[in-house]
């Protein structure tokens, strides 16, 4: 049974949109302002422990445009990002051209449940704010890894959007990956004992 891990760059005010600037938003690129020397090794370990990527369409498009050209310029990241199986959730894409990509549409929770049964390693979700919302509402997220960058972005897509159903998480780990950057890891808290 694979573990579904939502791994995000996040600002102090909870924004996850366009940390790398590839989506061209006015606020984009904030994750590069503060060095996180330990972050690279952290992300590489994470990627190596992953069996697949699960992405929303917007994040997928940004990655698919960027990573093929970075095959040889990003150390071990590029080859693995390009070779790892990828699943993109979209109602509009009919074909996904990035290597080893499959389009998921229709009953997303059911298909993600099947993916979790199919894989033993981690299924990694990066970015993908809309998809994460769907996954969370369906109880499919096992772990959140939030790399908190010391910025207030002010506006943009948030990890937990308006009207989010309240839920409790358990802090698993807090670790520093740079002088200003920390990773907070949370898992779903154990549900309260049921009477039935």
């Amino acid at each position: 049974m694979g573990k579904l891990v939502v791994s995000e760059f996040i600002s102090v005010d909870g924004i996850i949109e366009d940390p790398g600037g590839a989506e061209g938003t006015p606020q984009g690129g904030w994750s590069f302002r503060h060095p996180a020397p330990g972050g690279e090794a952290y992300k590489l370990d994470e990627l190596r422990a992953g069996d697949a990527l699960l992405l929303g369409r917007v994040t997928y498009d940004g990655f698919a445009a960027a990573w093929p050209a970075m095959e040889e310029t990003t150390g071990d990241f590029g080859p693995r990002m390009n070779s790892i199986p990828k699943f993109v959730v979209s109602t509009t894409l009919t074909e996904a051209t990035w290597r080893n990509s499959t389009v998921i549409s229709g009953d997303v929770p059911l298909q993600v449940t099947k993916l979790k049964e199919q894989y033993d390693g981690d299924i990694l979700v990066y970015g993908s704010a809309t998809l994460v919302d769907t996954l969370r509402q369906n109880g499919l997220v096992d772990e959140y890894r939030l790399m908190v960058h010391p910025v207030l972005v002010g506006s943009g897509k948030r990890l937990f959007r308006d009207g989010s159903v309240p839920g409790d998480l358990a802090l698993v780990e807090s670790r520093s990956v740079g002088p200003e950057v920390i990773v907070l890891t949370y898992r779903q808290a154990q549900p309260a004992a049921s009477d039935s």
Partner: peptide, 17 residues
């Protein structure tokens, strides 16, 4: 460690700092 969404937001409309 709770996922409650706004509500009322932290630092709404502050400039990017």
């Amino acid at each position: 460690p709770v996922t409650n969404g706004p509500g009322q937001r932290l630092f709404e409309d502050v400039d990017d700092i």
